[in-house]
């Protein structure tokens, strides 16, 4: 299959996908990274994205869905602009991970796997993110924030909120 002529993705990402499928002995190998990058750009793996990805790697949409539903970072519904992932696994738990998670719920006024009405934040309790020796830790999108306290977490969330406001103003 040659490069998609009609694509949902930005030219840069589409070009990257065109190349990705050639990097492996089998096209299908590009599937998981492609889904993750597509999700980063599109916000979620909706039906249209699934259809294009299926066509790019040469498998059925069902097979793509089978794969998406296996990986916990892949999702078909949009999340907040800042996806706050609080680790409560053992090392973080021992150093206040549960308290951080509770603080997030309180501060963002949402429960686990929910999104704030303004779409800015979503919250997820996650498994070990590899920050055990710097626990407790939170990942916001792909950024690690470690050795947190409830207070420093508050400041962090405020910073994201402010950043967004600034970015939005700047963008207009």
């Amino acid at each position: 299959m040659s490069a998609e002529t009609q694509t949902l993705f930005s030219p840069g990402l589409a070009a990257r996908f065109d190349r990705m499928v050639t990097l492996y002995p089998q096209r299908r190998s590009a599937l998981v990274p492609m889904l993750l990058y597509a999700q980063d750009e599109m916000g979620a793996l909706n039906d249209a994205v699934i259809a294009e990805v299926a066509s790019r790697v040469g498998i059925s949409e069902l097979e793509v869905r089978n794969v998406i539903s296996y990986y916990s970072m892949l999702h078909t519904k949009p999340r907040g602009k800042y996806h706050v992932q609080v680790c409560t696994n053992i090392s973080c738990m021992l150093r206040g991970g549960n308290e951080l998670f509770a603080r997030c719920k309180e501060k963002l006024k949402i429960e686990n796997r929910e999104t704030t009405p303004d779409g800015l934040f979503s919250l997820e309790e996650v498994e070990c993110i590899g920050a055990c020796s710097w626990a407790p830790a939170v990942q916001v999108n792909y950024d690690f924030h470690e050795n947190l306290t409830p207070e420093s977490l508050d400041a962090l969330l405020d910073q994201y909120r402010t950043q967004n406001g600034l970015a939005d103003r700047g963008g207009r």
Binding site: S60, E61, L62, E63, R65, N66, S69, Y70
Partner: peptide, 20 residues
């Protein structure tokens, strides 16, 4: 025909039909 697949994982694993 490949109209059936396995979705999700762990205890939530489920047999899934091709059209959702």
């Amino acid at each position: 025909v490949a109209a059936l697949g396995v979705q999700s994982r762990g205890v939530t694993s489920v047999i899934a039909p091709n059209m959702g």
